[in-house]
């Protein structure tokens, strides 16, 4: 069972995060003080750290720097109320793997933890999940939940581009460019046909569209 460390100086928020993650099946320890966090890390192993920046006695960034300089590669998700770009950059520069600004959706927090656990296992970016759709770019395999889905070559190429550019609109012209084949003319409705088939196979709301902008996928990453 994955073990998580929650470092959060607000006792109420820390307890709520701990309870929520425990309901998701994790073992979670909650600490309020920075020095207590460092002491716990030196004696116990954790799979993922959820680190607030503004901790008493030792800041989250100091703990992070200490960990990374000691060669500890435990995944760290920084959770803080500081939302300026420079704060994000400082957090990521110090070695954070992810950065979340409060208030955090507890379901999203659980998903980010899952993503870190999976990444730690694989340490590769050739598999990606959005909501319950998973795509293996190298293996050319797509599944919804645990069920594999059969896609044509064109449908796979459209889905690959949408997944790679997730959370942003991809224009129809870009999708046509992806499908363009020197030996084969791309029909004017090829993209619409592929999108329609993908919606049928992956769920009607998985691919979103807006007139004048194109298509987009953007569910929760896991």
């Amino acid at each position: 069972m994955p073990r998580l460390l929650i470092a959060e100086d607000d006792a109420d928020l820390g307890r709520a995060m701990k309870r929520s993650l425990e309901l998701d099946g994790y073992v979670a320890d909650h600490f309020v003080r920075g020095d207590d966090v460092l002491a716990a890390l030196s004696t116990s192993h954790y799979d993922v750290l959820l680190l607030d920046i503004g901790l008493p006695h030792m800041t989250g960034l100091e703990i992070l720097s200490h960990l990374r300089s000691a060669g500890d590669a435990t995944p760290v998700i920084v959770i803080t109320a500081l939302d300026r770009t420079r704060h994000r950059v400082a957090g990521l520069d110090a070695g954070a793997d992810d950065y979340l600004v409060k208030p955090v959706e507890l379901e999203e927090l659980a998903a980010r933890v899952r993503a870190q656990l999976r990444r730690r296992e694989r340490r590769q970016d050739d598999i990606m999940s959005l909501d319950d759709v998973t795509i293996d770019f190298t293996g050319h395999v797509v599944s919804v939940g645990d069920e594999p889905v059969s896609l044509t070559s064109k449908e796979f190429r459209v889905l690959s581009l949408l997944m790679r550019r997730r959370r942003r609109f991809v224009s129809k012209a870009d999708l046509e460019g992806e499908l363009y084949d020197q030996d084969q003319w791309v029909e004017s409705n090829t993209v619409e046909v592929a999108i329609s088939a993908l919606r049928r196979k992956l769920g009607r709301n998985f691919i979103r569209t807006a007139r004048g902008l194109g298509y987009m996928v953007g569910g929760r990453e896991g």
Partner: peptide
């Protein structure tokens, strides 16, 4: 202010979600 206001708001939200 961001930190002091967001943190309790986050705590309330997390409790409400629970």
């Amino acid at each position: 202010v961001a930190h002091e206001l967001r943190t309790p708001v986050a705590a309330i939200r997390a409790q409400a979600q629970l």
